[in-house]
Design a binder for these strands. Sequence first.
DNA 1: CGCATTTGACCGGCGC
DNA 2: GCGCCGGTCAAATGCG
Length: 186
Amino acid sequence: MIFLNSPPTSKAPEHVSKYNASDLWAHFHGIDNSVEYHDREVKETVNKFDGHIMEAYHNKSGHIGGDHESGPSYNCSEKNKKKPGKRQGEKVTRRHKFAFQTRSQVDVLDDGYRWRKYGQKTVKNSKFPRSYYKCTYQGCNVKKQIQRHCKDEGIVVTTYEGMHTHPLERSVENFDQILKGMRTSY
DNA sequence: CGCATTTGACCGGCGC
DNA sequence: GCGCCGGTCAAATGCG
């Protein structure tokens, strides 16, 4: 995979250092390294990754109700509309959401897990659809959505929701190699 | 045949 | 209440 570098984005805010490659990897694989999250959605430039500029969005916004949250964690529109408080009952299913965007030609990033597509919707303000995937491992409820950036179709936004309850099924040595490179660059 | 994908229907929340 | 919207379901279809 060879992709051209994007021009470096804005200088990283000071708290970015908390989210190094291993943290990212941990998130990626549903391992909670007890990193401190922000309640509001935060956008950070995480790292250069194999020529990709990755930005992470993570939030801990526990929406209540059923087993689904409302609203995409990434929205094309500027405003991140907050839903009016509906926190009653403390049945707060704090599903961890973690999203990042990648400069890539392909939509689906092979992360080592097996996913089953269960839906696709058109995205407002974008000609590209958003795809919905579920982890196929039994009992594992992790979901992810993939869509392209509305302004830059070369950017793929991947949103993970939930944490895997099982190890990887396939080796992802490729990714691991890349990760090592990221670590040494710190 | 068994599994994944496609795709329109369906559903709940929200704004008007 | 009604319609829109984002998300999910599930029957049909595709594919190895």
